[in-house]
Write a protein that binds this DNA or RNA. Structure first.
Lengths: 160, 160
DNA sequence: GTTGTTTCCTTTGATGTGCAAAGTATCGTC
DNA sequence: GACGATACTTTGCACATCAAAGGAAACAAC
């Protein structure tokens, strides 16, 4: 097997890892990866707007509405009209939502961050260069850069 | 921004590239990425069974049935009872299916393969090592290794 | 060759994700 | 105050996916 094949296998494994994590999450925490990501965004400040979720997750507002509907139905968050701008809806974290967030299995990016941190300085540089190279090769350059993996974003002291 | 963040951004860009490719494909070729992948598997030998598709794509047979249903409805493939084992259904490529396969936009992996091939020998080695390292970091090691990207598998002389 | 088990596939019914288009309410601005 | 932009919801749809149940054929064992 040549290196092209091996590289593609490795890439596929990486993508697959995010899918597997999504299934585990659903099984263990009883919440889907997408819903969990919404919960993470809400959790950052304890509240947020539909617009922000839509922007950050790159999905339509209609999708956000249905996502939040589900979370409301399950008691994870509540809706409340914003006082400052009454067009906006504030989405507030509930205790149950916070608990779900706290008890969720180790997110992918934390796993990554831990292992990355354990690497030698030169190794980190090499790895970063390689990943950026691949990203460029795939022409995935229209993304507004946010430090995220498939599920969840890198905030809340997940590193350092 | 530190290297952990940059690495995660690069990873996210890579994953995002596969999603974007899926949307382009649907727009341009009028077929979804998942259905296209089925078509690719059928196209390898001109025919295949539902079981093989199910195994290769890691989805249930029920899913395969509905996927093939759609392709049949669109005239991309036909079903035919296998003569050797009448439990099996042979899924055969039609001319239209073949045409769709041939005319599909440059798949991600071909883009990758071309650029990878253009790299220096030592660069290829470094990149491969990096990718495998990341795959390991994400613990995506339960995958039966097949040289695939998100959509489609690496066959049909897509490389070399 | 009948019986039991396994395999392959489909059907049915459900969930989750996602969007477009149309509608409602509110904000800002001229 | 009228008009256009913004934020969100509603409606109606498509796709991907599975679990469970069932039919049909193959296989194995007696």
């Amino acid at each position: 097997m040549d290196r092209v094949d091996s590289s593609l296998i490795a890439l596929r494994r990486i993508i697959r890892a995010t899918e597997l994590y999504a299934r585990d999450l659903k099984q263990i925490a009883g919440i889907t990866a997408v819903q969990f990501r919404v919960l993470q965004i809400v959790g950052e400040k304890g509240h947020t707007t539909a617009k922000e979720i839509s922007t950050r997750m790159h999905v339509s507002q209609a999708t956000v509405t249905s996502l939040v509907d589900k979370l409301v139905r399950e008691g994870m968050v509540t809706r409340e009209k914003s006082q400052t701008d009454r067009r906006q809806t504030d989405i507030l974290m509930t205790e149950k939502g916070q608990a779900t967030l706290d008890e969720a299995p180790d997110p992918l990016q934390q796993r990554f961050v831990r292992k990355f941190a354990a690497m030698e300085d030169w190794e980190q540089s090499m790895l970063l260069a390689g990943l950026e190279r691949v990203a460029l090769m795939l022409d995935a350059d229209d993304l507004d850069a946010a430090p995220v993996l498939d599920t969840g974003e890198l905030k809340n002291g997940a590193h350092h």
